[in-house]
Design a binder for these strands. Structure first.
Length: 551
RNA sequence: GGCCCGGUGGUCAAGAGGCCUAAGACACCGCCCUUUCACGGCGGUAACACGAGUUCGAAUCUCGUCCGGGUCACCA
C-alpha cells in the first residue's frame, strides 16, 4: 500500500525531487522576542487597492508594530485568469502612500525583501508540490479526474436530494482511485487535480478561539477539497497553509468571509504537522444601500477603491485615522488624550474590534479630517494642497504655484494662530473655499442681506474706502467700521442695537457684512481683516469701487 | 436551503447580573460667546429587535422567533 502511494506520488508529480524537510531547513524559525507577532497581508492582484484591503493591512500592521513583530506582504497570484496588469504595483504603492510600512515581502511594486521568499505564490509552485507529493505518499491526497461537467452533475444531484453540496464521502468519486486507474487516465492525457483525502467528519465539532470574534464552533471539514489545480498551482487554502507555516506567520488577520474556511485550514495544518496560526477575522466595512446594509463593494461603490480618497483629496493620514476609529472602539478616547501623537503609538488590542460590520461614515471621516487639517501649519497645507492639485486639478495647481508666497499667505489666514479654523476636510474643497483670493477664480456677487439698503451700503463703502489702512490690527480694523456706523444711522455696538433696534438701521456687524460682500463676494469667510491684508490695499479698493458701481 | 457570525439612538460605540434613571463621539437641533463663518462653552431630541425562561434582580445568561451579514468553486 505504502509502495503504491509512492508510485502514485511519482506518477503525479514526477519532477519533484525534494522533500519537505528541505524547505523546513531553508526557512528556519524567526528570531523574534517573546510575544512578537508576525502578520501579513496577502492581496491578490485582481483589482486596485480597496478599502477593505487597506483596512486589513492597517490592522495587521498595527498588530505587528505594537508587539515588536513583523508585517509582510505576500502576493497571492494563483489565479492567473483574474489577474490585472499593474495590480501588484497599485496595491503595494497604495499601502505605502497611506503610510503602511512594510517590513518584508513586496516592499514596492517590483522590489522584494526578506529571507522567506519568494513572496509571490506563482513562483512557489515547486514548494507546494513538494508538500503535496509527501501527502500523496502518505495516502492523504489523491488525484481526481472529474470534469467540470461531472462535478456539476453531482452538485445537481445533491441539490435534488436536498443534501449538502460538495466533494465528500460517497460523492468523492476518485477518493479510492488505484494506481492503475490513475495511470490509465494519465496515459489518456486526462487533466487532474490533487485533492485532500479528508479524514474529517461532519459529526465532529471543532472549536477555535478567534482573536476578534471569540469562541467559534463548527463542524469538522469532510470535503476532499482541491489542493493543487490542474495547472499545478495550489488553491488558496493549500497555499495559505504552506506559506504561513514557512513564513512563520503567528497571526492571520483577514476578512471574515474566510471564517467558514477555517475548518479546512485547521485540518490542513494538522495533517501537515504544522502549528496553526492564531486566526482573527475582521468584520467588513459596510455601506447603506437603499436602506440595506451590505459589504462595501469594489464594483458598485466608488469609495471602495482607495483612489477615490486620493482624488477627493482626503489626506492619507486622515483616512488612516478614520479607519483606526473603526478598528478600535477606544481609539477616539485615546486620540482626545493624545491629540498630537501618531496613531502608531496607540496600544491596539484585537479584542476591541467590532464583531459586526461598521457602516462607512463619511461624516466621521470629514470630522476626523477637519480636525487634522486644522492642525497643519500653512507650509504643510501648501505642500499637501499643491501635491494634490498637481495630480488632480492642473488649473488650480498653476494658480497656486504662480506666487507661492502669496498662496502661503492665503493659507495662513486663520490657520497659523492659536485656535485655527476647522475649515476644509479634503483638498478638492479648497478651490471653492479660497476662490475669491485668486483673481482667476474670483467671481463677484453682490447680494446684500435683506435688512440692508443699497444706498446705505454704498455710502458706507464710499466712506470706508477713504479710511482703510492695511496696517490696522483686527481691533483697529473694526474700530474704523464702528466710527462710520453712527454717521449713516447704524449702531456702533451690537448691544446698543439689540437694546433698541428701532433707533438704528442696523449695527456695525451688518456693515462688516457689506464690506465682506464687496471684497469677497460672500457672506461667510474667515477673518476679513486678514483677508484684506493678504489681498493688498489696491486690490481691496478696486473691489470696493467695483462694488459701489454694481450694488 | 445547510453551516457560521451578529442585532444598544440616524451612524460608530461603552457595557462582563445590581454601579443603567444606559457613557462618549459624529450628525442634527437650540442657546451663549462673537464683526461674519468657524472655534469654544452649555443644553436638547434619540437606543437595549421581539417573546419566553433562569434569577430577589437581565442590555448582560439560556431557548425560540424575527431581521441583517458571511459562506457553500480547479476565486481569493
Amino acid at each position: 500500500m505504502n509502495n503504491n502511494n509512492s508510485l502514485m506520488a511519482d506518477l503525479l508529480l514526477p519532477d519533484i525531487d525534494k522533500l519537505p524537510q528541505f524547505y523546513e531547513e531553508l526557512y528556519p524559525a524567526r528570531n523574534l522576542p517573546e510575544g512578537a507577532r508576525v502578520t501579513r497581508i496577502a492581496p491578490s492582484p485582481t483589482g486596485y487597492l480597496h478599502l477593505g484591503t487597506l483596512f486589513a493591512a492597517l490592522v495587521n500592521r498595527i498588530t505587528a508594530t505594537s508587539t515588536g513583530g513583523i508585517f509582510y506582504t505576500r502576493i497571492e497570484d494563483t489565479d492567473k485568469k483574474r489577474e490585472i496588469e499593474g495590480g501588484i504595483e497599485d496595491i503595494i504603492d497604495g499601502l505605502n502612500r497611506f503610510g503602511i510600512s512594510i517590513d518584508e515581502g513586496f516592499v514596492s511594486g517590483t522590489e522584494e525583501s526578506g529571507k522567506y521568499g519568494p513572496y509571490q505564490q506563482s513562483r512557489r509552485a515547486e514548494i507546494y508540490q513538494t508538500y503535496v507529493k509527501e501527502l500523496i505518499r502518505q495516502g492523504l491526497a489523491y488525484p481526481c479526474f472529474c470534469t467540470a461537467e461531472e462535478l456539476e452533475q453531482v452538485r445537481n444531484e445533491q441539490e435534488a436530494q436536498k443534501l449538502r453540496t460538495g466533494y465528500y464521502g460517497k460523492w468523492a468519486k476518485h477518493r479510492d482511485i488505484s494506481y492503475t486507474e490513475a495511470k490509465a487516465f494519465i496515459d489518456e492525457g486526462k487533466p487532474f487535480v490533487i485533492r485532500l483525502k479528508s479524514p474529517g467528519s461532519e459529526e465532529n465539532k471543532i472549536v477555535f478561539e478567534d482573536a476578534v470574534k471569540g469562541k467559534i464552533e463548527m463542524p469538522e471539514n469532510d470535503e476532499d477539497f482541491v489542493l493543487l489545480k490542474s495547472d499545478g498551482i495550489p488553491t488558496y487554502h493549500f497555499a495559505h497553509a504552506i506559506d504561513d507555516h514557512l513564513m512563520h506567520t503567528t497571526h492571520v488577520l483577514r476578512g471574515d468571509e474566510w471564517i467558514s474556511s477555517v475548518p479546512k485550514h485547521i485540518q490542513l495544518f494538522k495533517i501537515l504537522g504544522f502549528k496553526p496560526p492564531k486566526y482573527g477575522h475582521i468584520s467588513p466595512i459596510m455601506k447603506l444601500d437603499n436602506g440595506a446594509k451590505r459589504k462595501i463593494s469594489k464594483r458598485k461603490d466608488p469609495e471602495a477603491a482607495v483612489h477615490f480618497f486620493a482624488e477627493q483629496g482626503y489626506d492619507s493620514e486622515c483616512v488612516i485615522n478614520y479607519l483606526m476609529t473603526v478598528a478600535a472602539s477606544d481609539f477616539e478616547d485615546w486620540r482626545r488624550a493624545n491629540p498630537d501623537a501618531s496613531y502608531k503609538e496607540f496600544k491596539f488590542n484585537l479584542k476591541k474590534m467590532s464583531v459586526s460590520g461598521a457602516l462607512f461614515d463619511e461624516n466621521k471621516l470629514t470630522d476626523v479630517s477637519k480636525n487634522m487639517v486644522s492642525k497643519l501649519k500653512s507650509d504643510e497645507v501648501y505642500a499637501k494642497l499643491t501635491d494634490w492639485a498637481k495630480e488632480f486639478d492642473k488649473e488650480f495647481y498653476d494658480i497656486l504655484i504662480k506666487n507661492p508666497d502669496y498662496t502661503k499667505a492665503v493659507l495662513a489666514i486663520d490657520r497659523d494662530v492659536p485656535k485655527p479654523r476647522k475649515d476644509i476636510a479634503r483638498w478638492n474643497e479648497a478651490k471653492d473655499y479660497f476662490a475669491y483670493l485668486f483673481d482667476e477664480l474670483y467671481i463677484p456677487c453682490y447680494e446684500l442681506p435683506e435688512n440692508i439698503q443699497k444706498a446705505d451700503a454704498i455710502s458706507f463703502l464710499e466712506e470706508y474706502k477713504n479710511v482703510y489702512s492695511p496696517d490696522d490690527d483686527r481691533q483697529a480694523w473694526f474700530d474704523r467700521i464702528k466710527e462710520i456706523a453712527p454717521k449713516i444711522g447704524f449702531a456702533a455696538e451690537t448691544k446698543q442695537y439689540k437694546a433698541s433696534p428701532e433707533e438704528f438701521k442696523g449695527h456695525a456687524g451688518d456693515l462688516s457684512t457689506v464690506l465682506r460682500i464687496a471684497v469677497t463676494g460672500r457672506r461667510n469667510t474667515p477673518d476679513l481683516c486678514s483677508i484684506m491684508q493678504v489681498l493688498g490695499k489696491d486690490e481691496c479698493i478696486n473691489r470696493i469701487n467695483a462694488a459701489i458701481k454694481s450694488i
